[in-house]
Amino acid sequence: MSEVLRVTDLSTQFTTKGGVFKAIEELSFSLDRGQVLAFVGESGSGKSVTALSIMGLLNPRISKVSSGSVKLNGKEIVGATDQFLQKIRGSKISMIFQEPMTSLNPSISIGEQVSEVIQTHTGCTSAKAAESALDVLRKVGLLNAASIYNSYPHQLSGGMRQRVMIAMAVALEPDLVIADEPTTALDVTTEAGIMDLLKSLKKERKGTFILITHNLSLLQGFVDQVIVMYAGQVVERCTTEQLFNHPEHPYTIGLLGAIPQLSDLKTSLVTIKGQVPSPFDRPEGCRFAARCPFKEEVCLKPQELIEISPKHWSRCIKSPLKLDQMALRPINQTSKGLRIL
C-alpha cells in the first residue's frame, strides 16, 4: 500500500496576548491510500489545529509550525511556498469545514464555486469545468443537480450545503480529504446521509480521509485508525476496533462512557470531572492526572507514548490497565456509571 501522508514530530505554536503555547506537541502518524484516520477529543484538544497545520492554513500572525515535518506523497509541506501550497490545495489535498454556510461564498452561485476549483487547477475551458461540476454535484447525491448548479448557498438547506462542500473537496479526486466536524451542525437524519456519502466515497473511489470529530459514535463502519488527543498531546492511538473493545488510556475510557447508549439497561453516564487544563497552565506530568481516577504518584512525571501492543499506543504509565493491580473497589458499590450487575 502506498503512503499518502507522513507527519513527524509536528508541533504548532500560538502566540497570543496571554503568552506562547503549543496547541499540538510532537504529533507523528502516517496514512496509507484508502485509509481513514480519525482525530477525537474535546474542544481545545488540538484536533482542528492539526488539520490547519497539515493544510498550511495557519494564521501566520499568531501561529506557526515550530518543528516537525508534514509530507504529502513524499513532498514537504512545512515551509513550502504559498505558490506550491495553492497548487496542491484543492487538487491533492482538500478540506471540508464544519460550517457550510460560512465557508461557501454567499454571492456566487453553487455551480460557479464548484467549477472554479476545477478550472483553476486543470486549466480546462469553462464549459468543460461546468460539465464536470454538474457531474460531481450528482455524485454527492444532489438529485436535481442542474437546478442546484444555478442556486445560491442561502437557498439550500444545511445538509445540501454540506454536500456542495464535499463536492468541491472531492471534485479533483485529491489524495487526501480532511473533514473537520462535517456533521456537527446537522440533524441526525442529515448526518446519517452525509456519513453514508463519505463511506461510499471511501469504498468506491479509494478515498483517503482524515475525520475530525468529538462524536465517537461516527467512527464505526468508516474509520480505520483513531488518534485520541488531549490538551495538545496524543494520548492514545489504535484501530477503531481496539478503541471500542480495548481502550487503554483512562481519558478514552471515560469518553466512551459519556455517550448515551440506546439500550434498555438503565445507565448513568460517566462524567469526567473537572476540565481540560488551560494551555498556559499545563501540568508538568500527565496532563490528564488531575481528572484521572487511577492516578498515582508516578503520574506527576511526564508521560511517554508507549506501544503497549502491536499498533496500539497509550500515553499512560499504567497501561495496559489491569483491574487486579488497582486499589479495587467492590464493583456493586459503585453503581453510578456502571452498566453491569
Binding site: N245, I253, L256, V270, P293, L323, R339
Partner: peptide, 15 residues
Amino acid sequence: SLESIRLQSFQSYFA
C-alpha cells in the same frame, strides 16, 4: 464479553 466487563469496571471508577 470479557472486554465490555473490563471497560465497565474501569468506567465505574469515574463515578
